[in-house]
Design a protein around this nucleic acid. Structure first.
Lengths: 199, 199
DNA sequence: CATGATGGAGAGTGGCACTATCCGATGTCA
DNA sequence: TGACATCGGATAGTGCCACTCTCCATCATG
């Protein structure tokens, strides 16, 4: 398939595909002449991946580049899969000191984690920002959210166990980490409406 | 407190505060002369709110304007609180048709919701994007995520019951809807690490 | 009275994800 | 065979957005 057909299949303008090619996000097609190249289903999937990452996950071009690199990299052990995935979509909110409350939270839950990892910092920052903005958020509520987050994480990890090989495992973890955030947010909104109607 | 002190307290440049004033996101201080105005703790809270919305919730200036409007608006009945909050931070992902799978999902869960609401569309779009990008996501997994989302929503709604008056209820719902998304994402990442270490 | 902060308005900046233009080479159809 | 569209490749431009800066007359303060 030619670039114009790839554009049609994916509903992405040719110019944008050229941009992705230039940025190294989309692998070149097989050149059939100096001005022609042939693209296949792998390219279609890649373009869909890029659109999902940019449009829904909001990771930007840089983040997408890291995701693509992670997918093409030999994975390493299953234990460090998550590390790769989490580094691929880095935490936001700066590198503030982890608060005592957050430390206690994970301790009370019995979680064993890197105490000063980026997501512990991100958690501190987001909780602090929500409180500073005037949201009354009790520690008890946070614990309940954490329980729900743990349930989600269990499913996340289950997903990786089904993977047939290392490549599939990487894809599942990396994509699951980035692409399911918006799914979970949408589910939360729909669930809010359902619970609200029940009461 | 003068604008420069407000800037110091909130760690936001004076120029940015002026920008917020111009955009109507920050209420004017009490003018003590033609070139002086006095700001107070309400202004500090408002600036923290704006920063949290823009930096952590990523709702942008327009979204922040809607949040501020919702906070200042008389609330209405408790039943429509959620509607206000959800309209304040609108769904992304276009207005695609809601898929049969998503319809069945909420039906199987026994949820009563607007069948073609914006978040049902958003859910369809994000699930579809994740699949198109190559993520193998079974319906069964989705159901498990939905259960967790429901748990979160229960806590969300509990939060509103504690509110003393209508104004506090609006603040809780609107801020909770927007500002807790990043908290939940961070919790998910930390929980992933904890579960991963256990296995 | 000198200095510097202030409010107010407009214009400028930087980052980002495209998007358009240009080019020469090459398919393709009449 | 010749007209014409399309292609890859490179450069430059666009639109959006959240600031950020400049300017200035006015005023507060030492």
């Amino acid at each position: 398939m030619r670039i114009s057909q790839l554009a049609e299949r994916t509903d992405v303008p040719v110019h944008t595909l050229k941009y992705y090619l230039r940025e190294g996000l989309l692998m070149p097609g097989v050149a059939t002449s100096r001005t022609r190249a042939e693209y296949d289903e792998d390219h279609v999937r890649r373009v869909h991946l890029l659109r999902a990452l940019v449009e829904h996950a909001g990771v930007g071009i840089d983040g997408a580049r890291r995701v693509v690199a992670a997918l093409e990299d030999p994975p390493g052990t299953r234990a460090e899969l998550l590390g790769v995935a989490q580094r691929t979509v880095p935490a936001t909110g700066g590198d503030a000191e982890v608060s005592d409350e957050v430390r206690e939270l994970v301790a009370d839950l019995g979680w064993t984690v890197e105490p000063d990892g980026p997501w512990m910092r991100s958690l501190t920052a987001t909780v602090g920002a929500a409180r500073a903005a005037g949201l009354h958020l009790e520690h008890r509520r946070l614990v309940e959210y954490a329980h729900a987050a743990r349930d989600v994480a269990e499913v996340d990890l289950d997903l990786t166990e089904d993977a047939e090989d290392a490549a599939a495992a990487v894809r599942t973890v990396v994509l699951g980490t980035a692409l399911l955030d918006p799914v979970l947010i949408a589910l939360r909104r729909v669930a809010q409406e359902a619970v609200s109607r029940e009461r």
